[in-house]
């Protein structure tokens, strides 16, 4: 049990997928302009990443490895994630409109989110077992959502600040992300 806890803390704080592993930066800068959008995106990523992490792990372990097709991993994973995201989107739109209203519009964005694909690949590269893969996928996504929401809070505040004209937009976003990353480095000593 404590192993999983350690893994969770590590994935959320120390090796934060956005700030330490540089995965999923495009939406991080794109979707963090408003708090509610960031929250929606964070939730959608938690949902899809957990699902995708588990399903790609099953496919890898029970299909690709036994059939000796490991070299197809990249292409199979991306296809599975794309199909999965599309399916979830269609499914939610009809069956759970309330949830779709909150997450729906963020789903297509996730197909090309390298965080999802990256975590799926890390799961199998590190040779996690099923539980580890589940916990790692979920907590990585939580780390992503946490960083995204924090960033949105900062950027909402920054909207009223006087920023030098040459730094406006993405530049100040990157510098802010840098300072957030620095803060997260402080968790390094925890484990």
């Amino acid at each position: 049990m404590s192993d999983y806890l350690l893994m969770a803390i590590s994935a959320i704080f120390i090796n934060n997928i956005l700030l330490a592993q540089y995965l999923g930066n495009c939406p991080f800068l794109g979707v963090s302009k408003k708090m509610d959008t960031a929250t929606g995106m964070g939730m959608a990523v938690i949902f899809v990443l957990t699902l995708a992490g588990v399903i790609t792990w099953i496919i890898d372990v029970y299909l690709l490895c036994p059939m000796d097709l490991v070299y197809l991993r990249t292409i199979v994973f991306i296809l599975v994630i794309a199909a999965l995201v599309q399916f979830v989107e269609i499914f939610l739109k009809k069956m759970v409109p309330a949830l779709y209203a909150g997450l729906g519009i963020f789903l297509p964005l996730i197909t090309t989110n390298c965080a999802v694909f990256g975590v799926a690949v890390i799961n199998v590269r590190e040779g996690f077992n099923f539980m580890e893969a589940l916990v790692f996928s979920f907590t990585s996504a939580v780390g992503f959502a946490l960083a995204l929401v924090l960033m949105a809070g900062l950027r909402e505040r920054m909207a009223t600040a006087r920023i030098p004209q040459v730094l406006e937009g993405t530049a100040i976003g990157l510098v802010t992300a840098g300072f957030m990353s620095l803060a997260f480095l402080g968790f390094m000593g925890m484990v």
Binding site: C26, L107, T111
Partner: peptide
């Protein structure tokens, strides 16, 4: 590409 660079959540949301 659903890159999110426009500030909307993906191309579908931007189209909407």
């Amino acid at each position: 590409a659903n890159c999110g660079g426009c500030g909307y959540a993906g191309c579908g949301a931007a189209a909407g």
